[in-house]
Write a protein that binds this DNA or RNA. Structure first.
Length: 651
DNA sequence: AGCACGCCGACT
DNA sequence: GTCGGCGTGCTC
């Protein structure tokens, strides 16, 4: 049999002490089916106990000094785990001191036996490779092609406008660029993996791909598919034919033979944050996979993330030349109040132009999501409350907190209503539906289209309409919007997060990129560096300044962080272990609930492997040390040491 | 995790 | 003598 008769197996287990390969002998009856990459059942520790795992490799002999147990069974003969995906999972897990089996759970969908049988019975038919492709748009002629050929790491500020596909559909120009880049990889018989934050982006990308690639060469892996469809697409991707695989954050682990391109749209979008352990961001997994595979890597966005800016600054990622795109015509307007009835949130200039534009075609109004940081109004007459000192909007920054002004920060403890002299404030949540209502009255002859997270609209036609959308749910308009109003900038900036400014710049930029060339984009109620970055369309400059500020503070992504949670004594020991590594400093610990403490370990990128090694060793030690009896009666308390690397919500 | 091994107290 | 209690340690 090829490769030897000892099977090395990774067992499915969340236990850190089991995150290693165990050796088993292969019984005669499994000689044919026990191939690397198949799912297997193995006995673990004692007779009756059977664990599931992955057959990683076959070797001639074992280092294990003891008698090997036999493989119990091969679950499916299909080698679902390709060697390069295993290598990626191992490296991604190591980077975050996590279990490889946790990564593999993201990488391989659950099995559908009927789907698998049908797939095995069917004749493979991947369709032809694309031929005679047009050049890749969006950068200098030939620049992306050259990067593809040489396996470069690239950052691209994409053309900020909607474009019309040969099929007649309109998509963001970014989708056409990424689709063409993937098609070019495919034309060279290489696979491409394209990661997008959500399914609406995926729809645009798929529409753009349909224009030049046989649909059999395009596989999608997303949560909207049924489990069976997802498994079928996954099985197809394990074949040796080159494919384009598109999907969400876990698609970075998709099987893809002869990988030629990894592309990621809008890597700063929070939907790409991986919530499942060990929480490896697909951007980091992509960087690992790029190095392992030699594929090209392309980060495309309107707003460069601070993380990519860092990679550009250290020279790891190369900035692609950007042609002189027609930029959105952004008009920052600080003023809030407007005399027109029913238009309290829209400045008068923007108001007039929007009314004119909506006679010609669709007008986009971007609003904040309802719910967080509600605005305040007079409890008696419902007049929106304003700061007595400067006229700014009043908000309650946290639940139960004291109202303050968003502009000057003045506390509004002694507020009284200028209209009715009431003294009580009430929270009002202005979401999309309420704005749609207001605007519907203010634009009496316009059709109003509402798009929010619950009922998203993917596209609107070129006919006049007022399109009210929560940020991130903006439909693409055929031909582009005739005007865009970014209404709730102030409110969006109230979110408490290190990334809030970058997020806002991203939301505004992405909405502005839906405007028709030359159409006005009004940014309402926001001034300063962010407004300038948007109106000059120089987001990378903003990212550069932001990274410099984070460097001065030693905040991520200037450094890496790991949050460590444990009981005080355990934590102290683990932190000592981490401090052994040069370039490490520790914030905290601070007490959190249930007798636990948390600390933040900060370290330079170069110290990363040693920090994760040290913390991993501590996790194994804590998991295997004898349970300490508390004086008197023995208490079985499971030992806790939680480690989370590169948490986007830290600090 | 989850299960077997083993080293002390109460039993036939 | 030896049954079984639950702490201890290991998983190819």
């Amino acid at each position: 049999m090829p490769g030897g008769s000892v099977a090395r197996v990774l067992v499915d287990s969340p236990l850190p002490q089991l995150d290693q390969l165990f050796d088993y002998s292969v019984p005669e009856r499994l000689r044919e089916s026990a191939r690397p990459g198949v799912r297997v059942r193995v006995p673990l520790r004692t007779g009756g106990r059977i664990a599931v795992g992955w057959l990683i490799e076959l070797v001639e002999s074992s280092e294990f000094r003891g008698t090997l147990s036999e493989l119990d069974d091969v679950v499916s003969e299909v080698p679902l785990l390709r060697p390069e995906v295993w290598a990626l999972a191992r490296a991604a897990a190591d980077r975050a001191a996590g279990n490889a089996s946790d990564i593999l759970r993201l990488a391989v969908p659950s099995r559908y036996v009927r789907v698998e049988r049908a797939w095995q019975a069917a004749d493979p038919d991947a369709g032809p490779l694309p031929a005679e492709l047009p050049p890749i748009p969006g950068s200098a002629p030939g620049a992306i092609e050259a990067g593809l050929a040489s396996g470069s790491r690239m950052s691209l500020a994409v053309d900020p406008r909607p474009v019309r596909l040969p099929t007649g559909e309109w998509v963001g120009a970014w989708a056409a660029t990424l689709a063409q880049a993937a098609a070019h990889a495919l034309a060279a018989d290489r696979s491409a993996v394209v990661i997008v934050p959500d399914y609406r982006d995926q729809e645009q990308l798929q529409a753009a791909l349909a224009a030049s690639v046989d649909p059999r060469r395009v596989l999608r892996t997303d949560a909207r598919q049924s489990g069976g469809d997802r498994y079928r697409a996954f099985l197809e991707a394990t074949r040796d034919e080159a494919r384009i695989v598109i999907g969400n954050r876990s698609t970075i682990y998709a099987p893809a033979p002869r990988l030629g391109l990894i592309a990621m749209w809008d890597d700063g979008d929070g939907l790409l944050n991986e919530p499942l352990a060990p929480g490896v961001h697909p951007r980091d997994a992509a960087l690992i996979r790029q190095e392992q595979s030699g594929a090209a890597l392309l980060f495309a966005a309107h707003t460069r993330s601070v993380e990519v800016e860092r990679l550009v600054e250290i020279g790891w990622v190369q900035e692609l030349p950007t042609p002189r795109h027609v930029r959105p015509r952004v008009i920052p307007t600080e003023q809030q109040a407007s005399p027109e009835p029913g238009s309290a949130r829209i400045p008068s200039a923007a108001w007039r132009q929007a009314q004119e534009a909506v006679r010609e075609g669709p007008v986009l109004v971007q609003v904040a999501r309802p719910g967080n940081a509600p605005l305040l109004a007079c409890d008696r007459c419902r007049e929106p409350a304003r700061c007595p000192a400067c006229g700014g909007t009043l908000v309650v920054p946290r639940e139960g907190g004291i109202a303050r002004c968003v502009l000057c920060g003045t506390s509004a403890s002694a507020w009284s209503c200028p209209v009715c002299e009431g003294t009580r404030l009430r929270a009002v949540t202005v979401g999309a539906s309420r704005t749609a209502d207001e605007l519907g009255r203010a634009f009496p002859n316009s059709r109003v289209v509402l798009s929010d997270g619950e009922r998203p609209v993917l596209r609107v036609g070129p006919e006049p309409a007022l399109v009210v959308a929560t940020r991130g749910a903006e439909p693409v308009a055929d031909g582009g919007y005739r005007a865009v109003l970014l209404l709730d900038g102030e409110r969006m900036l109230l979110r408490e997060s290190l990334r809030v400014a970058e997020d806002c710049l991203r939301w505004w930029s992405n909405a502005a990129a839906l405007a028709a060339p030359g159409a006005p984009v009004f940014l309402v109620g926001v001034a300063g560096a962010l407004a300038t970055a948007l109106s000059t369309w120089r987001q990378p400059e903003w990212a550069r300044a932001e990274l410099a500020a984070r460097r001065a503070l030693r905040f991520p992504p200037a450094v890496r962080v790991a949050s460590v949670t444990a009981a005080a004594s355990t934590l102290a020991r683990s932190l000592d272990a981490a401090r052994e590594v040069e370039g490490v400093d520790v914030l905290g610990p601070v007490p959190i609930d249930e007798g636990l403490e948390r600390a933040i370990v900060r370290f330079d990128y170069g110290a990363g492997p040693r920090v994760s090694n040290e913390l991993r060793a501590e996790m194994i030690r804590v998991a295997t040390e004898r349970r300490r009896p508390v004086a008197g009666r023995p208490v079985r308390r499971p030992p806790v040491l939680r480690v989370r690397f590169d948490d986007p919500d830290v600090p």
